[in-house]
Design a protein around this nucleic acid. Sequence first.
DNA 1: GTCAGTGCTGCACACGTGTGCATCACGGAG
DNA 2: CTCCGTGATGCACACGTGTGCAGCACTGAC
Lengths: 347, 347
Amino acid sequence: MDGAGIFKTPAKPASIKDIARLANVSHSTVSRALHHHPLVNEETAERIRKLARQHGYRPSAAARSLVTQRSYTIGVVVTSISDPFVAGVVTGIEEVASRHGFSVFLANSNADPEQEIRVVQSFDERRVDGIVVTSSRVGALYVPVLSRRQVPIVLLNNQHPSEFAYSVVIDSTQGSLDAANHLIDLGHRRIAYLGDEFGRQSDTERLSGYREALTQAGLRFNRELVVHGDGKAEGAIRPMSQLLAHAHPPTAVVCYNDMSALGAMHQIRAAGLRVPEDISITGFDDLHISQFLNPPLTTIRQPMPEMGRMAMETLIALLSGNVSQQNILVPGSLIVRASTAPPKEIS
Amino acid sequence: MDGAGIFKTPAKPASIKDIARLANVSHSTVSRALHHHPLVNEETAERIRKLARQHGYRPSAAARSLVTQRSYTIGVVVTSISDPFVAGVVTGIEEVASRHGFSVFLANSNADPEQEIRVVQSFDERRVDGIVVTSSRVGALYVPVLSRRQVPIVLLNNQHPSEFAYSVVIDSTQGSLDAANHLIDLGHRRIAYLGDEFGRQSDTERLSGYREALTQAGLRFNRELVVHGDGKAEGAIRPMSQLLAHAHPPTAVVCYNDMSALGAMHQIRAAGLRVPEDISITGFDDLHISQFLNPPLTTIRQPMPEMGRMAMETLIALLSGNVSQQNILVPGSLIVRASTAPPKEIS
DNA sequence: GTCAGTGCTGCACACGTGTGCATCACGGAG
DNA sequence: CTCCGTGATGCACACGTGTGCAGCACTGAC
């Protein structure tokens, strides 16, 4: 917050002028030599480059970006990097960014609007060339920044889809429908949905996918079988025990994501029941750990790094002036594992 | 890699001179007004600040850092942000950094020396005020940067501890000793160690902690019960099946970390055995998911965000010229859960 | 009326880099 | 010898901000 205080002065790095002095030329010539400008004599250029190498000269990105009006940095806002889904996405973003010479600023918002404002302000001062936002719940805050400077913003699995032009989004509806259909195919008739009360857009879509599957199969939609957690494992405990306390508990649960599924399974075991013998469970994400769970989790895979890559590539396309597909809808894929099985009895 | 190409020019943000023109003063006065310099008339200062607010003026960090010789950025190098341990640490780092007005550059090295060099070079060009490195295997690469510029570097759970002055490290030896002692107290006599072939320093320490526990308990150390994975779940499959194929399989396994334990448990079940009835398992880290596993994992907790916070606070202390404790050894704590139990029979 | 003091403001430079334009040396053609 | 083209280099400015120092207007004391 303050950043003030007495600072120990580090050794000043070599500047372009230092190299120029050593080579007995002007700093312009050094600049051109390092950029392989054709107008510089090849011999002197090589001599300059050698000197620069020897003295470990690194051009100051700050000075350069001051004149070029381009920082070659992007800002990434996430709710929490501890969220494994987010981490997977950021991996993809960073990979593409680094390959194209961009550095990435990472900032957590903790889903706190005030913090999110501060983050955007700092990105603004840093003059980032673009911004990627994952799973934000406060999309509206970006409008001022977007309109004042023309910084391209790409939203990834955002909760306010219509607000912005560019986005990468998983097909939640279809994924959830696939998960529910899988359970129906196995013979389940009483299927619950365990959602995320904070997942404004995605929760709505996943709920409607689940609902559509029921409708298509001629099953009636039961409000009592819809409960909500917070998208985390611990948050699934209460809603799951709520389902278990029901007079006719479900034989299967479609969970908002893998972490919710993890918490749900934990609570099912705590109640002395087994997965999938007593209750089948599906997740959403296919986190790396999900295949190693006991039982391994049936889920809808989101290609997280790939989605991150797409977001960053969209950003780069925008920065290059290329027209880019505005809204990318990414299909999920059903991964069947051992957490789902036919129900014990016809209920 | 290139970063070149035709760029769409975004709207140029308001500069300090624009505000100066609007306020009919020189840019110096604007600068002073915004910094609440006492020599500026309070009325005009307020007028200037209002104008700046209205026009959404944000000072350019690049220009500022050019003259102040301070970027208020730090670089964080990690092997992979997808690693949940790393993500936990970065959360702590980012929290403290943001609170002190620092922005953080995040870069993955993928444990690739070449990539790590590129990362350090880019941090160098960005003139970061400090660097945090987590779990690096290639510490020696930082020496050139460290010596040329005087950029403070803090290493977190690094594998080359003696190379640098400042570090935050978990007490691996004691943690591993605690885990092994816990198993011995439960009555286990044939205890295996499943390590990480890449964890140069930490693996050595955890192995020696395990070994010391055996010695103290009067148990003989058996080379055949020491196997190595790669610190990831899938990497634990092969060494674990190796242990299971042994003529006298162990009744308990001390694992290098939670992810290895996850893979080991998976393989144990694949062999038709149960945890903890047939084999007890301990981990190291206490990842967020570990409490929700089936069975919940007994492990040594590393306070990941806290360690990240300590690393960043060390950095800030160094930047403020305060002397700081050079090497912080963080104690782990044994968390007993259901993956450990007394052995079935006396072996 | 002069002078010192005070309160405020602008000038001018610095930070490190990129680049349009002028300049310079040189060589060849007329 | 003059003229002009060519290849290489430097000058000078710009980018946006911070700051030492000079300078201004005004006030009050003598």
